[in-house]
Computed example of a mutant assay.
Amino acid sequence: MGPGTLPSQGSGRLDFTRYRRSGRPRMTGHELLAALPEIASIARVEVDAGNPHEVAALEEVRKLALRVNEVLRLPEVDGVVFIQGTNTLEETAYFLTLTVRSAKPVVVTGAQRPFTALSSDAQINLLDAFRVAAAPGTSGKGVVVVTNGEINAARDVTKTNTYHVHTFRSRDVGLLGYADADRVVFYRAPTRRHTVESEFEIETIQSLPRVDILYGWSGAQPGLAEAAVGLGAKGLVMAGIGAGAPGNLTPELARIAASGRAVVARSSRVGEGRVLRNDNWEEPGMVAADNLSPQKAAVLLSLALTRTGKPEEIQRFFEEY
């Protein structure tokens, strides 16, 4: 488990927003299991000795992926449940689905309300995470995110609300299934490459190339992309306006892409729909991020850059993963 809201303890039952300042420590994995004895009827759970695992930076997520792979290689382990804060949960889940080389279930969960809050989602989300991890149909579906009774694919899911519990959604492509009171049920499976079909060997990756995200809006000023490259960025993700248009940053990004100083991937700030190749805004050397969010595109671009710096080859990664 990592830090986050789910194991947090507020100053009282109505402490929904300032629990980080309550002075009470986060609950440990053992304390969470003791508070939810129902989990013991679902699975025999062992708390990882390495907890808590920090996941604030991509380098920390890389180390987490190494640990998850190590644990899943043990014959006595049938699956993994990872708890973390919801703010970057989707990035962690996507990184894991690209780098965990096992068909065993990996479930990531979190909560919008601390464990001690009135009507907290922490308890049911954690219970459902173990239910989904223990369900036979979860194997082979890559990393999944389980919250609010819903199962979403790591690639597709995103946080859509700051505080409400119905926050993790897959928007236009839809959820995978439900963790309902009677049973866990799946309606579809991911079709993009993941886990055992991935070509990313996390054990051979010692560090991840820097990738920065640039946000497009009507007041964006030239110089941002050059500044990022000057700071060491090997990849740039443009959270473009509309269908991935770089807007005011187009000339600057076009020069960078043409020179090969960094790989430029066009994504969109819209939240749904694909960014297409050979459209009005593609410049030579640019990559189209398909329907990945800017943050997911940055995760994939960083991993892709460990394999190649050629835009045409990186484009293949965006079409297959």
Rank of each mutant, 00 (worst) to 15 (best):
T167E: 10
L300Q: 01
R73E: 15
M238T: 00
S41K: 14
V157F: 07
V132D: 08
P190R: 12
L253D: 00
E312V: 10
E282D: 13
D172K: 05
A258W: 00
T5K: 04
R171L: 11
D156E: 15
T92W: 03
S267T: 03
F82Y: 14
T92N: 02
N87S: 13
R62A: 12
G140V: 04
R261N: 04
G230T: 08
N278H: 14
L96V: 04
V71D: 13
D182A: 10
T99F: 02
S8P: 06
V145W: 07
R131V: 04
E90V: 06
T138W: 07
G260Y: 00
R67S: 07
R193T: 09
K104V: 10
G85L: 05
R269Q: 14
L292D: 06
N69D: 11
G232F: 04
N87I: 08
R21L: 12
I39E: 13
F168L: 15
L89G: 08
A189Y: 02
V108L: 11
I42Q: 10
Y215L: 11
R169D: 04
L58I: 14
K141I: 01
T160H: 02
L64D: 02
S302R: 11
L58F: 10
F130L: 09
V173A: 02
S267C: 05
L208T: 07
V106W: 06
T97W: 03
R26I: 09
V108Q: 04
H30M: 12
T158Y: 08
M238L: 13
A225M: 02
E203P: 00
G140A: 07
F317Q: 00
D172P: 12
S41C: 07
N161M: 10
F186P: 08
A228C: 11
V77H: 04
V81D: 11
D15W: 08
E60I: 06
V184A: 06
V100G: 00
S198P: 02
R131W: 02
L32V: 05
P75E: 12
L253C: 01
N278Y: 14
A297E: 03
A35S: 15
L14R: 09
L176I: 07
L236G: 00
Q9L: 14
A56P: 08
Q221K: 12
F200S: 00
V196F: 01
R274L: 13
A103W: 13
E319P: 03
E203T: 04
V146H: 05
E76G: 02
D121G: 04
E199L: 11
T158K: 10
F317L: 03
S8Q: 12
L301F: 04
A288L: 08
G230L: 06
L58G: 00
S293R: 11
T5G: 09
M286I: 00
L66T: 06
G140Y: 09
K104D: 05
L6C: 07
R44N: 11
I314V: 13
V81H: 10
V146F: 05
S293F: 09
V196G: 00
F317V: 01
I314P: 00
E252N: 04
T88I: 12
